[in-house]
């Protein structure tokens, strides 16, 4: 059984059709990236998967449960992180990481032990007693990811979790998280508008065109796949001259970030 199943799902906001006949599956232990331009309906699809939004039509199943109608069934099964860290300012980094464990009723001593282990695994040693405002953006996002992982969910959902960080921070965080998720065998659904995020992390990439539906599927880790040509074919699938508006941001050899659009440096 697929861990995540999305079948012929449609959703609209008043006159705006955000998701149109979207179908895909994510198997256990797989890391799948949904890539699409801003406004493609990625977050709308994401919200239906995490149970915050009801599809107009179609079927969504997460670990076999309907995430909207049977929301409580996913208690302890999903870990979610977003573009912004959404940390609670009155809790320290450790307190934030412990938050999900508190909701699940894990005793204090056990919570602390697990939070400390996550601080270490997300390379936040020494930051446990600091409050969110005392942390850098990259560190806050690490805490946010640790908070999602600390409950040991079988499914991890990430909506643009690496997109708001500068390139170097985003890259190290991506690498660290990717390695961690693979080591722990988590099923991962990553949503991003940045092609490099997807190419670097995912086993499988689904390219979405607005209103959200799959127009291309790619396996960046398959034998013979070249990241560069993959990047270009995804850019083509995203299509349109204004693909450059969102662009694929890459770090050039000199470490200077630049906007690279369809092979030309803008």
């Amino acid at each position: 059984m697929s861990e995540i199943l999305v079948e012929n799902v449609t959703h609209h906001f008043d006159a705006v059709l955000a998701v149109s006949d979207l179908s895909f599956r994510v198997e256990r232990g797989e890391i799948v990236a949904l890539v699409g331009r801003t406004g493609a309906g990625k977050s709308t699809a994401f919200n239906m998967i995490m149970g915050a939004l009801k599809p107009d039509q179609g079927v969504v199943r997460v670990a076999g449960h309907d995430p909207f109608a049977n929301s409580k069934a996913l208690r302890g099964l999903i870990g979610v992180s977003f573009q912004n860290d959404r940390l609670l300012p009155w809790l320290t980094a450790r307190g934030n990481i412990e938050f999900g464990l508190r909701i699940l009723g894990v005793p204090a001593a056990e919570r602390r032990k697990r939070a400390d282990s996550w601080l270490e695994q997300t390379k936040l040693d020494g930051a446990g007693d600091l409050y969110p405002h005392q942390l850098s953006g990259g560190m806050r996002q690490r805490v946010s990811l640790a908070r999602a992982l600390a409950i040991d969910p079988s499914i991890v959902l990430l909506d643009e979790s690496f997109s708001q960080l500068d390139h170097v921070t985003s890259k190290t965080l991506r690498e660290d998280f990717g390695a961690l998720a693979r080591r722990l065998g988590k099923t991962c659904l990553l949503i991003t508008h940045r092609i490099d995020d997807a190419v670097e992390m995912a086993d499988r990439i689904l390219v979405l065109a607005p209103p959200a539906h799959v127009v291309m599927e790619a396996r960046p880790r398959a034998a013979g796949a070249s990241p560069k040509s993959l990047q270009e074919s995804i850019e083509r699938a995203l299509g349109g001259e204004d693909g450059a508006a969102e662009g694929t941001e890459r770090t050039l050899a000199g470490g200077r970030p630049a906007l690279v659009a369809r092979g030309r440096v803008a």
Binding site: M50, A52, S71, K72, L74, R75, G76, I78, G79, V80, F82, N84, R86, L88, W90, F99, G100, R102, I103, L104, A148, I151, L157
Partner: peptide, 26 residues
Amino acid sequence: PKDWVEAIGTFRPSLFQIFYLLILPH
């Protein structure tokens, strides 16, 4: 912030936990 409510909601808290862990400190 709606963002916080949504993020905390992913852990599926009870109404009492939302009150005690989110609203009260806020």
